[in-house]
Design a protein around this nucleic acid. Structure first.
Length: 781
DNA sequence: TGCGCACACTTTTTT
DNA sequence: AGTGTGCGCA
């Protein structure tokens, strides 16, 4: 790549505005010489800034042209942020640059090389819902038992295999079950290929394979991208790492930014080990740690640091700040989840009165189920809140229906879409008719749309009418704008009529309107070609600095799409809808308290953060305690949560909690013991219930009998069962000490005399049944 | 065909 | 407790 004399590489132009205000580590990272680099970027250390400034610096110093840079992120949000920031510092159009999500870039790649990839030009992308129903169809077609082959698990198997880079024939088969799973995988692949659709993992895998198997293509792209930058590197899976190596080749520079302490996605295939693998395999000489934190006060960072120091497998990092200690981290113990919610909303109201905008208050929890109590408390108090998670815009049923019709305009052989709407709204096409149709299609190896002739009788006539409807819609929308197309389809399909007559259809109608708006916005503002248009690749490659070999116009590497050819706005919009599920569209615009899982909070920051439900079994979650790695990931989760807070952090836990319709007695999370006592301030809880409001030592409070807990709200009255052990009276909710399992809380008491037994929640040792005649239990108070 | 009831499930999730 | 799915019945 247009090599400059090595000594000029380091020298930032004096007074270069770009590099002003960077701290020494950031500056070092941004101006690293052209070699592989690993940047360990702690939370709040200016990671995005380093990434964007690095790109700008490479371009500004003439080391690379914009077309020679590829930057990969995981989320659309991160990609967008990078593009926006870059646009403000670089006087060039950033739109055509290869900056995007892994999947977005793969999509771009496959659109350009659809022929080589053996895909139809207008291939569609299955989201996870579509994938699930596609898998379900395969299982049905193979006459397999859905009990033994649970569609969701099969989906995981397929995605998991692909993310390991394994095609059906590559999967090691050890048992009969796996054999069949592989058969399903193969049948699913055939079905997708037949229907011209790809799932998310397929985007990655097919791109990888194309690069691997097409030398000319590989050389072309390896020559083009001199610099590869990766965000959130700790979240990459095996396939993504292999994919990256494929683009890196022998000579291109990889600039990987990540934080092993924030690796919280192992459960979906992320390999933190990729970081050390990268360091070793790429002979990384430059590992730069960004430890200076610009977000939080000292007490918050001390808590984060001390907690995470309990993890053994770390690359090692310590956050520091010059902002001073700030306020202590407040710890609250509630008697019940309900009480926790009450306290929290009062505290939040107080913060708001003192001037904190609601949008700067975040409530975090480990699992979604915990949001309900909190939500109802806020709702009843009339406090605006916004819950992240749940269905996103393009995932809503009515939107999926509309999109299915639109997809059928592009490709009537898309059976997934066909099945979704063939009888929605109902047009007299029942299960039996559809079964006949599927049989016919299977027998002839054709699509459902192509097989309607094979179905006789009334059902067949209705199917023919449906096909005619699709054809008519296609004719009527030819040449229309995207907005007009969608409006026509919504009417002609009778979707709007259906929801107009529906009792609860108003919101759905509004969403359909919103779909039209989204399309309009997509066409005008974004420039619809962003994802789906094949970029003039060779032209861009030719723009790489001189000395680069000229872009070769060989047939095997020329993009299949003519340079600059524009895919229809509709096709582009459909791709956009699949790749970007949209916002969760909670009450946007309003100043509302932000509620989300800890996972969802990664990458965000707030002035005030409440981390709730910090109890053994919830955080760390009981399902993750079986192995040590699981516990470490839970700790990282807690670490991520803590480092979201700028000014004020609250930690809370509760003695009792409604879960799965049962009251559970929990002990406080072990993570409390891993925080620096000096940074914490235990708020003495006021015991509610009998109206006395007396105070007591918070550390002892959790050990109290829960009869209080059940007396003031949601929880049902708990029968005060009493049993004895060594003459000591025990009751449900009682805290006890066991020599082997430590402290626990009695959850259930059963039987009497010699048969008496107790179910005890020992937190980190789990839930145990103990015979009271045997077990030595000491009451704790 | 469509409704309603019974039943199972419930960590975290982006694309 | 709450929700989503699947089956059976009218």
């Amino acid at each position: 790549m247009n090599p400059l004399p090595p000594d000029t590489l380091h020298a930032p132009a004096p007074g270069n505005a770009l590099l002003r205000n960077l701290n020494p580590e950031q500056l070092a990272a941004v101006t690293l010489p052209n070699r592989h680099a690993l940047i360990l970027a702690g939370a709040g250390s200016g990671k995005t800034r380093v990434l964007t400034t690095r790109i700008a610096w490479l371009i500004q110093t003439g080391q690379i042209s914009p077309a020679g840079v590829m930057a990969v992120t995981f989320t659309n949000k991160a990609a967008k942020e990078m593009l926006t920031r870059l646009a403000t510092i670089l006087p060039i159009p950033v739109r055509g640059m290869w900056i995007g999500t892994f999947h977005g870039l793969c999509n771009r790649f496959l659109r350009a090389h659809w022929k080589l990839a053996a895909l139809p030009q207008s291939f569609q992308i299955l989201d996870s819902q579509d994938q699930l129903s596609a898998v379900r169809r395969v299982i049905k077609a193979m006459n397999l038992d859905e009990e033994r082959f649970v569609p969701k698990q099969v989906t995981w198997f397929i995605a998991g295999s692909k993310e390991e880079g394994l095609r059906p024939r590559d999967v090691t088969v050890r048992d009969e079950q796996t054999r069949t799973l592989v058969d399903i995988y193969q049948a699913y692949e055939d079905q997708c290929q037949r229907e011209g659709v790809v799932d998310f993992a397929e985007l990655m895998l097919r791109t990888y394979e194309l690069m691997r198997d097409q030398p000319a293509l590989r050389e072309h792209y390896q020559r083009r991208f001199g610099h590869l930058l990766v965000d959130e590197f700790q979240d990459t899976n095996r396939l993504q790492y292999a994919w990256l190596k494929m683009f890196a080749g022998q000579s291109n520079c990889v600039f990987a930014v990540g934080d092993d302490d924030q690796s919280i996605y192992a459960f979906r295939g992320a390999q933190v080990g990729n970081m050390s693998d990268f360091e070793r395999e790429f002979h990384v000489e430059h590992v730069i740690k960004l430890e200076r934190n610009y977000r939080s006060y000292g007490n918050i960072l001390d808590s984060a640091n001390e907690l995470i120091a309990h993890n053994r497998k770390r690359l090692g990092k310590n956050l520091r700040t010059e902002a001073g200690p700030g306020e202590p981290v407040r710890v609250y113990e509630a008697t019940s989840d309900y009480a926790e919610a009450q306290w929290l909303l009062e505290e939040a109201q107080q913060l708001h009165r003192e001037g904190t905008p609601r949008s700067e208050i975040a409530i975090l929890y480990r699992s979604n189920a915990q949001s309900r109590v909190l939500e109802s408390a806020l709702f009843n108090a009339g406090i605006p809140y916004r819950v992240y998670g749940g269905l996103r815009f393009f995932e809503r049923a009515e939107i999926k229906h509309a999109l299915a019709y639109l997809r059928l305009l592009e490709n009537p052989n898309d059976d997934t879409s066909y099945l979704r709407v063939v009888n929605f709204p109902t047009r007299g096409i029942g299960a039996r008719t559809i079964e006949q149709l599927q049989d016919a299609a299977r027998a002839s190896g054709r699509s459902l749309y192509q097989s309607t002739g094979a179905v006789t009788g009334k059902g067949g006539a209705n199917l023919a009418a449906f096909n005619a409807l699709l054809d008519a819609m296609r004719d009527a929308t030819r040449g229309l704008t995207l907005r007009e197309i969608i409006e026509h389809v919504l009417e002609a399909s009778a979707l709007t009529d259906f929801y107009r007559n529906e009792k609860e259809g108003r919101e759905r109608l509004e969403n359909l309107d919103e779909l039209v708006n989204a399309a309009e916005a997509f066409v005008t503002q974004e420039g619809f070609g962003k994802d789906a248009v094949a970029l003039p690749i060779d032209e861009q490659a030719g723009a790489i600095a001189e000395g680069d070999p000229p872009a070769v116009a060989r047939a095997d590497i020329t993009p299949d799409v003519e340079t600059g050819e524009i895919v229809s706005p509709l096709a582009a919009f459909l791709t956009h809808a699949a790749l970007e599920a949209g916002d969760n569209q909670a009450q946007a615009g309003q100043d509302a308290i932000q509620m989300m899982t800890v996972h969802a909070a990664k990458g965000l920051e707030f002035d005030c953060v409440f981390i709730t439900g910090l109890e053994e079994g919830l955080c760390p979650h009981e399902n993750s305690l079986s192995d040590y790695e699981g516990l470490e990931e839970e700790r990282r989760l807690m670490y991520v949560a803590i480092t979201r807070a700028r000014k004020r952090l609250y930690l809370s836990h509760s003695q009792t909690r409604m879960l799965h319709g049962q009251t559970r007695y929990n002990i406080k999370s072990r993570f409390f013991d891993e925080l620096p006592e000096g940074a914490l301030k235990w708020i003495t809880p006021k015991v509610q219930g009998f109206g006395s409001g007396f105070a007591r030592d918070p550390r002892a409070a959790w050990a109290q009998a829960p009869s209080h807990g059940s007396s003031f709200g949601t929880a049902k009255k708990i029968e005060p069962k009493v049993a004895t052990s060594d003459g000591v009276a025990l009751r449900v909710g009682q805290s006890v000490f066991h020599t082997k399992f430590g402290e626990g809380v009695i959850v259930t008491l059963e039987g009497s005399g010699a048969d008496a037994r107790a179910q005890i929640n020992f937190g980190r040792h789990g839930l145990k049944w103990l015979a009271l005649s045997v077990a030595k239990l000491t009451p704790v108070d």
